[in-house]
Amino acid sequence: MKRRSVILSTDPGIDDAVAIALALFSEELDVKLICPIFGNVSLEHTKSNTEKLLTLYRKTPEVVSGSARPLLRDAINASDIHGESGMDGYEFPDATIFSNSSRTAVEAMHEVVNQEEQTTLVGIGPLTDIALFLHLYPQDLAKIDRIVVMGGSLGRGNYGVLSEFNFAADPEASKIVFNSGLPIQVAPLEVGNQAKIMPEVTDKIRSFGEIGEMIYQLFTKYRSGSFEAGLNMYDALAIALIVEPEMFEIVSTRVEIETATSLTYGASLIDLENYLDLPANAEVAVNVDPIQFEEWFVESLARTAE
């Protein structure tokens, strides 16, 4: 089976750390490039965290740092959820894998896309770099299989009243992505709230060697959901959408991003009732089977101990 070529834009972040492991150890995916970006914490931290993770995972996709700030607004962060460094709670070994600083993430995306027949872009942080790539290299769009993102919300937000963090971090970039005309798949906030990892699952993951212990320790510090009542898994959903789409209920619909500087700035309007009377521009997951997700999650992370 030919593995799917993937570029990952990420802002680790505890749940990003897990999503990166799921992607790197997947039998279906071939991660060609990882581009850390500002988001949960600053670019300085997300770059360092990516280098530490790859060193621990003993995987060597190319790493090229992305944007340190959004297109227009000031940067926000989620250190209240992920800790000051983004991955508090585990003493990582010193990194031996480092980011390539000879070019930008967008240039690296362009190079990878042109080396492959088709590439999937995965955005599990702010969409700044993906938007810049689409803007600067429109000739590459035919070689993009799809864009898969974790972001947006069906209803209320987790950053603003109606805005989810990843889209709120750079609403203009999110709008560019959804206006690109490319196939887009979305895992919104509410589906992450359904995909809970319970304490007994976390205990099982702990048995998966050094990487399992790392994930366990990070989960003890993760502040989305609770360790006792279940931790919400968001970014892992983007990987699951690619490799196990049958676990989701998916709706083809219109997604619009609010970019007016108003109380709803950064909100995603996922038009499930077709109020806007506009053609669909995305496939949006509206539900996930939590049992199937848990089984896939555990089986996938078990590969890290092989």
Rank of each mutant, 00 (worst) to 15 (best):
T46V: 05
A240K: 07
V64D: 01
A236C: 06
S42W: 10
F92H: 12
A169G: 02
T253C: 09
E306R: 14
L154Y: 02
Q217H: 12
S48G: 08
I144Q: 06
I14A: 08
P279C: 03
F167D: 05
G212Q: 05
S153K: 10
R103I: 04
Y265S: 05
G192P: 11
S85V: 09
N40S: 10
R206T: 07
I176R: 11
T50C: 12
T55K: 02
L134E: 05
E210K: 15
F293D: 05
V106G: 13
I242E: 09
V113C: 03
I14R: 03
E210V: 11
L301Y: 02
V6D: 06
L8P: 01
L269C: 12
E190P: 08
Y216H: 08
A240G: 09
P36A: 13
I97S: 01
L22E: 03
G157I: 03
V106Y: 04
K59M: 14
R3C: 06
I20P: 03
L141S: 14
D203A: 15
A260P: 02
F297N: 00
V161I: 10
F98L: 02
P183F: 00
D30G: 00
D271W: 06
E172R: 10
S85K: 14
F167I: 13
N114C: 05
L134D: 04
E84K: 15
L301S: 02
S268A: 15
S99W: 00
I34G: 10
K204Y: 00
N274I: 00
M1N: 09
A195Q: 02
I97K: 03
N274H: 13
K221M: 05
F167P: 01
E27R: 14
L33N: 08
E306Y: 05
K196I: 13
T264Q: 07
E28H: 00
A23V: 05
D140W: 04
G212K: 02
V251W: 01
N193Y: 07
R73V: 02
Y234F: 14
N77W: 13
P171G: 01
M1T: 14
P245V: 06
S48K: 15
D170H: 14
N40D: 13
Y137S: 06
E273F: 08
T259N: 10
K175H: 12
A229C: 07
P279M: 07
S102P: 04
E299L: 04
Y57V: 11
V64C: 04
A267R: 14
A108S: 14
I291P: 02
Q292Y: 09
C35P: 04
L134N: 06
E258F: 09
I215N: 01
E172L: 14
D203P: 01
D80V: 04
A280P: 03
E28R: 02
A229G: 08
M198C: 07
A282Q: 12
G266A: 10
K59P: 10
H135Q: 15
L121C: 01
L54C: 14
E27H: 12
L276Y: 12
R223M: 11
R58S: 13
I97L: 12
P171C: 06
A260N: 11
L141F: 08
L127A: 15
F178C: 11
E256Q: 12
P199V: 04
A142M: 07
T259Y: 09
L127T: 12
M87N: 14
L8F: 12
I197L: 06
I147P: 04
A168N: 09
